[in-house]
Each structure stands twice: as C-alpha cells, then as structure tokens.
C-alpha cells in the first residue's frame, strides 16, 4: 500500500484533480462503450422481433382474407 489512509489515497499527494480526472474520463468512456453496445444490441433485437411478428401476422391475415374470399 502506497498510502497511509483512505484520505491520503483520495488526495493523491496533491495531484488528486489530475489523477482522478484522467481515470474518471477513461472509466466513463469505457463504461459508456459497454452501455452503448448493450443498448444497440437490445434495440436491434427488439426491432427484428417486431418485424418478424408483423411479418408472421400479415402472412396469417392475408391467408384469412384469402380464405374468406373463397367462401364468398
């Protein structure tokens, strides 16, 4: 351990703003990349599912209308 106390650790020997700013921005960007990738994937899957559902339902309705026409 390079520091005597937690206060010491936060103060970084007077260099706190520089060290924590660099680490903070890096951490925020890395977390942001992960969150963005996850959100992108979820959104895509949801859209694909919606498309698929719509495609199957339109298939069914078109079959039904076709059948009704036959009966008429």
């Amino acid at each position: 351990m390079a520091f005597d106390s937690f206060q010491d650790f936060l103060a970084m020997g007077g260099h706190a703003p520089y060290v924590w700013a660099s680490w903070g921005v890096t951490g925020a960007l890395l977390v942001g990349i992960v969150l963005h990738a996850r959100a992108e994937r979820r959104q895509l899957l949801r859209r694909l599912q919606r498309h698929e559902r719509r495609r199957t339902t339109t298939d069914q309705t078109s079959h039904q209308t076709g059948g009704q026409r036959h009966e008429a």
Partner: peptide, 20 residues
Amino acid sequence: LAFAPADYQQGNSFRIIYVH
C-alpha cells in the same frame, strides 16, 4: 492506483500512466 509506489520525480501524478 493504491499499491504501486509513487514516482520519485512526479509523485502520484504518474499514476495517470496506467490509463494513458
């Protein structure tokens, strides 16, 4: 951040190296 020794010249600001 916590265990590596501080640099003799730059003190604790050298810990930026670990992200830079």
